[in-house]
């Protein structure tokens, strides 16, 4: 009997391994292998053509970063963009979640509708926004100009000057407005963050709100002392994933860059892509990838550490 159980246990073990074997192969081929290769490559000079052209160069790639003046600019661009993008996404995502959560019976319907743009994140959407934000004929600027025209009369009447001197922003065709343009485009897709916030709100429930209301707490106090703590794990999750994704943003800057922006959409990922696939400096690009990983790890660890007292992880659990 003992032996039979043992035998069964043994069989179970091997069975389990069969089931994960595709994933194991994937882990080796797609993650562990490449990570190790990237580590080695970061210390080499290689054009990616033939093995004979590979030469070890020690720290040369990392030293080259110091003299790469476009790298500093790219890094700064990515950080500025992330600093605008993440807070905007958090505020609008939470706002949408609160709005949807007010609907008692049709939460699912509204959530689905608001979530839809989030899944339409490809090139097609970027090209649609490319024209929506066209400074001359795009509908966004047409609407802004129409509003400015309408305001002109009242402004003059109130003695505040005229709106004739103002114009709608040049969006993607200016170094100042290029990054805000991307942030604006991405707000259309804030539904992804909303879904995470909404799940946290629904888990949190209404009972605390009811009790606080009976004690005479106003809307602001209830938001600050109940809603925010309830969604704090979701806030943290959205902030971290937001930072990781924004620092890697590639599609938008790649597709929407132009001469008038003067390099303001030259993000870190674009710099890395060009180093590898346009200049064929694979060793340097691998070193850049490691730099990105180190920056993201440092960001993440700092954020988790700084907010550890405030984020109420236990309230996020079932």
């Amino acid at each position: 009997m003992q032996a039979a159980i043992h035998e069964h246990g043994e069989r179970r073990e091997r069975g389990g391994l069969w089931f994960v074997s595709p994933w194991m192969a994937g882990l080796a081929l797609l993650y562990v292998g490449p990570m190790m290769a990237a580590g080695l490559l970061a210390t080499a000079r290689w054009d990616g053509q033939s093995w004979t052209s590979l030469e070890w160069s020690g720290w040369a790639n990392f030293q080259a970063m110091a003299t790469d003046d476009r790298l500093g600019k790219a890094l700064l661009n990515s950080i500025c963009y992330t600093a605008m993008q993440v807070p905007a996404q958090l505020v609008v995502g939470l706002g949408l979640a609160l709005l949807v959560n007010q609907s008692r019976r049709r939460i699912g319907l509204w959530a689905t509708f608001y979530y839809l743009p989030h899944v339409l994140g490809g090139v097609a959407t970027i090209l649609i926004w490319w024209w929506l934000l066209n400074p001359q004929v795009g509908p966004v600027n047409q609407a802004i100009r129409w509003i400015l025209d309408g305001l002109d009369g009242p402004m003059i009447a109130l003695g505040l000057g005229t709106t004739r001197d103002w114009d709608a922003p040049p969006w993607l065709y200016s170094p100042v407005w290029a990054k805000p343009s991307l942030v604006l485009m991405n707000l259309w897709q804030a539904g992804g963050g909303m879904l995470i916030f909404l799940a946290a709100l629904l888990r949190g429930g209404e009972s605390l709100h009811e009790a606080a209301r009976l004690d005479g707490a106003g809307r602001c106090r209830r938001f600050w002392h109940i809603t925010l703590p309830q969604v704090s794990p979701a806030l943290m999750f959205n902030a971290l994933t937001g930072i990781v994704f924004s620092m890697q943003a590639f599609n938008q800057p790649f597709l929407l860059r132009n001469f008038q922006q003067q390099d303001s959409l030259r993000f870190f990922s674009l710099h890395l892509y060009q180093a590898a696939f346009e200049q064929h400096r694979f060793g340097y690009a691998a070193a850049l990838a490691w730099l990105l990983l180190a920056i993201l790890l440092a960001f993440t660890a700092t954020m988790v550490f700084v907010t550890r007292r405030w984020v109420q992880y236990d309230m996020g659990e079932e």
Partner: peptide, 27 residues
């Protein structure tokens, strides 16, 4: 299923989610 190393492997799986795609792209 119960098999040796299961929990370690699962943590590894979750860890791969944290890796930026760009670090892996070149290798």
């Amino acid at each position: 299923l119960r098999w040796r190393g299961r929990d370690v492997c699962f943590v590894l799986t979750l860890a791969t989610m944290m890796l930026p795609a760009q670090v892996l792209l070149i290798p």
